[in-house]
Nucleic acid binder design. Structure first.
Lengths: 217, 217
DNA sequence: AGAAAAATTGTCCATTTGGTCAAAAATTTA
DNA sequence: TAAATTTTTGACCAAATGGACAATTTTTCT
């Protein structure tokens, strides 16, 4: 019949599952898996608790679905790093993409942060296989750039760790950031981007000659 | 009578409260406030649940005491930054102190991270007053160094954010880091320190002349 | 030692919460 | 329109859990 609709779900099913997932993201990202209650999710999406359980078999399953549904999107910017591109440009672009996600998707960021913070019981496998493999590839690209003399000599792994840490910090610890800085969000992220751009430029540029022009003394 | 013992607690009280706090740190840092149960804490310290409630009036109070008991220690390295010292040395020292804490006190780091991640309901006040004030002072020091030409021109606030983010990342997201890198902890933190030292050196050194010696072309 | 105070515990309770289920309501299909 | 199917819900249950409390044991003090 309706082989076109994704996963063969009826209109109602797609709508309701969507509502539930959206509400679940709100609640899980704010409270974490355990503190989030089905009642909170139910209230947030205007359904009753048994109705939610008609669409998902358990609270854990909702959590799993939400987490998994966001995973690809979350890792996507990493795939955009191109071996063919200009090294520093590529890495600056990656940082900016991650920072943009922190600004526009803080709930998602917090959801992942919370999951990893508590041992990543549902993701450890993915981290150690899929993410690790992707990262290994990108680190190889960085090593290549370094060996070609297009990039200062840095550890690719730690470079990625620090980009993750610094960009996600503005989402995950926004309460702290906002307790210290009064700026509005636009200003804040503008400043952050400027700061991080400068940081990466200094970090990644070759020490002797900035840019490409070697200018002998 | 025993006016010397801190807070006038008996030997037994000091011992038991210590045990409870230690166990509570384990459990709270692993599970978070809500998922942690008094039974888990009781098991972890070898006491019964009612016995714990003899020393602390509620689970929330235990959490509050643990968090507060660690706060001073947590912020301490910030106070060590001296206006009189050599700027880059001071900031490298701060980074190293924070990194050392991530290595030696990952549970504490996770406890704070979790608290802030979920809106810092018990700390927002402290963040916005005490921490903010201390940080303002230290940022003023950095601005002073910058204006004196002893440091590259960077935003002090964002510099601190990035140092916090990068160092605490190795504790808070250790599961992810370890899923990606096989190194043992000593190696890992050794590499991290090297990487971060390099990063800060490049970030903070004045662009034209490294070190202090201006060597005209 | 004996009394007083402190510490410990077994038992119990109320609330929260994930989940069940049968019945009712709404929707789709024939 | 009537039957079949899907969706929704009110009522209910069992387990988990924070906490109360009286009784008992241990420690301290005189």
């Amino acid at each position: 019949m309706n082989a076109v609709t994704e996963k063969n779900l009826s209109r109602i099913q797609r709508e309701k599952r969507g509502k539930i997932q959206k509400a679940a993201l709100e609640v899980f990202s704010e409270y974490g898996l355990r503190s989030a209650t089905l009642d909170k999710i139910a209230t947030a999406c205007g359904l009753t608790k048994p109705n939610i359980l008609y669409y998902y078999s358990s609270k854990d399953q909702i959590y799993f679905e939400v987490l998994n549904g966001l995973l690809d999107e979350w890792v996507a910017p990493l795939h955009e790093i191109s071996k063919e591109g200009e090294p520093i440009e590529e890495l600056l672009g990656y940082m900016k993409a991650k920072l943009k996600m922190s600004k526009q998707k803080p709930k998602e960021s917090k959801l992942f942060a919370n999951e990893i913070l508590h041992g990543a019981p549902l993701m450890q496998n993915i981290l150690a296989t899929s993410l690790r493999q992707t990262l290994d590839e990108k680190v190889a690209v960085i090593d290549h750039w370094v060996s070609e003399g297009k990039l200062a000599n840095v550890s690719g792994y730690h470079l990625f760790f620090s980009i993750w840490a610094m960009t996600q910090h503005y989402a995950d610890f926004d309460v702290q950031v906002k307790a210290i800085l009064d700026k509005n969000e636009d200003e804040l992220f503008q400043d952050a981007e400027e700061y991080l751009t400068n940081l990466l430029l200094r970090m990644l540029s070759l020490p002797s000659n900035q840019n490409h022009s070697a200018e002998p003394c």
